[in-house]
Write a protein that binds this DNA or RNA. Structure first.
Lengths: 338, 338
DNA sequence: TTGTAGGCGTTATCAG
DNA sequence: CTGATAACGCCTACAA
């Protein structure tokens, strides 16, 4: 069933059918009705491929996220809200998971595949692996998110990690903590590097000394967090408070604490990052730093729209992190006991 | 940069270029080299839209999942593994989240949108809301997953809920439990209804009586689980063991237990469903029933391939649940104390 | 206001 | 083995 068939049945030319479909208002109302009736009863739907080919626009965008984080609800929500924003703007989204671990250039491969599909733009939200795209000339609009500065290679939704960490560290300093640990993701991920720097800066801003020995570099996963906390507790002088690079790692850290008979919010202060729904349901609930996938995904999509439409002047999109106080923090105890 | 431009530069017809691109082996090797050289240096990539139009195949499939579950890692992994299987077979995937809560027909709307995009098939993995598609004539191959029986309206990856629940209940019965609660998702979701029936059947199979009053029907979310457990504990005679419709709800239930000073695996037995990664990181770790998104997504994709290729005879895909023992179960205590 | 003709970038069917 | 030529389904001047 195509446009010509409809035309034949409605006894008009296929151009007229095309006009009706596209709401051109110079068509005789009687013809409009006749055509629409035929469309109705035949259940005809225009072929998007053909339309895209003719118009040169696909109304499709690509979204590349990191595969490592498959079990991390953060990315699940990124996808959800990105898709929602896209649909609201009449776009469809092609999804791809990049294996950033074993194949650093995989995100580029995914992006290239999408480009063949004529996507109008691509959001590469891998939070730290974007730089591998530089060597691949992708010539559709590209958007990243997560870096704290403007990127030379693509539009970026900047993330200001500082406010969240600043208030978190101020909170800990007020409690009297001086030995503050940090469970970091692998610093080869630029986003993890950026968070690390933000922690360092925030520590100093809180008037505390930053101690590299209290940084555990692990995978930013459930098990990575568990490992990181184990490493910190095994130090001869463990920290009295610990920040984590994300909530998933913080949940892993909680597990290690439990296994050693320690309790966050009582024996040690623990702070996560992301403010996932789960952080409300841990025991104790997790103080954390909000990094809303909903907001980020929305900003990323809007930035992508601007790139596609070449809007000028460009809006400067920035996401500001924010400290969320719950139950997992307390005054120093571990250090003072030992 | 299109196929004609390449043809001009390589001094051949565009048909020859097409042949080279598609690896037709009757082309003069010298021409092949000449064409490939031009393709190389120009960075030309074929236009998938045009190719799809000409071939009548898009090599694209759709995946519709439920939006409610946005914060649930289960769906994040479903998407990941479905995409992976698709890419392995040379397919790209269009993703959509259906708002199954407030718009029961939304999955159908999403599917219709995808159909306009000429997807070759659609997997609607909403686990319980599929029946709303019946009234929408979608005429591309459709696959569902989660029902325990073959569906009239679409191919289905059957899930056998029984083995998992049977072993779970046997385990509880061996401990001596007789009052076993169940935190169910809303029974308007057919998948929740099916799980409920499986629990009932398994309870009887374990030689126990099934008590409807010990079933709490809530949302299958973190907070739903918390609420469900609260409801059960508020009974005049609470259950000594509780099953949950999924792990996310079980984590919510753990939260309620903690708030009341109770401990799973000591004061009360708790069993989840899904075997999400997080179930290894709760405290105590969660005994659960494995419902692997990885395997399910893979089976769903394979079933979809069969539907698309109209393979005969059809493979009967069934996923069998399996009980996973961890630390959250114990002998009855709560009831015996009161 | 309507219809005719040409084009979007491919693939596929023919002669040659 | 190669190259015209005609689809694929739609949009859009341009002409009527």
């Amino acid at each position: 069933m195509n446009i010509r068939e409809i035309a034949k049945r409605a006894r008009v030319s296929h151009s007229t059918v095309s006009r009706v479909i596209n709401g051109v208002d110079t068509v005789d109302p009687r013809l409009v009705r006749r055509v629409q009736a035929v469309i109705q009863e035949s259940g005809y739907r225009p072929n998007f491929q053909a339309r895209a080919l003719a118009r040169g626009r696909t109304h499709t965008v690509g979204l590349v996220v990191s595969e490592l984080t498959g079990g991390n609800p953060f990315f699940s929500e990124i996808i959800l809200y990105f898709e929602r924003a896209a649909v609201e703007h009449g776009y469809e989204v092609l999804i791809s998971f990049a294996d950033t671990e074993t194949r650093p250039d995989h995100a580029a491969v995914c992006a290239a595949r999408m480009q063949e599909r004529q996507v109008e733009g691509i959001a590469v939200l891998t939070f730290g692996m974007e730089h591998h795209l530089r060597n691949f000339p992708i010539d559709v609009p590209l958007v990243h998110a997560g870096s704290d500065r403007d990127l030379p290679e693509a539009r970026n939704v900047r993330v200001n990690y500082f406010p969240g960490f600043r208030d978190a560290l101020k909170h800990l300093a007020d409690f009297g903590h001086t030995r503050i640990g940090y469970i970091s993701g692998q610093l080869s991920w630029s986003s993890m590097k950026t968070r690390y720097e933000a922690v360092r800066k925030a520590t100093k801003a809180a008037g505390l000394g930053f101690d590299k020995d209290l940084v555990a570099e692990c995978a930013h996963t459930w098990s990575g967090g568990a490992q990181g906390m184990a490493n910190l507790l095994n130090l001869s002088k463990p920290p009295t408070a610990v920040l984590c690079c994300n909530d998933v790692a913080a949940v892993g850290a909680l597990k290690t604490l439990g296994a050693r008979g320690l309790q966050a919010g009582k024996d040690i202060a623990l702070i996560g990052f992301d403010n996932l729904t789960i952080s409300q349901f841990t025991q104790p609930s997790l103080s954390t730093i909000e990094f809303s996938p909903k907001e980020l995904a929305r900003l990323a999509f809007l930035a992508l729209m601007e790139e596609i439409q070449q809007t000028e002047p460009k809006t400067s999109f920035e996401y500001k992190t924010r400290f969320v106080l719950r139950e997992s923090t307390c005054a120093p105890r571990l250090g003072t006991l030992s």
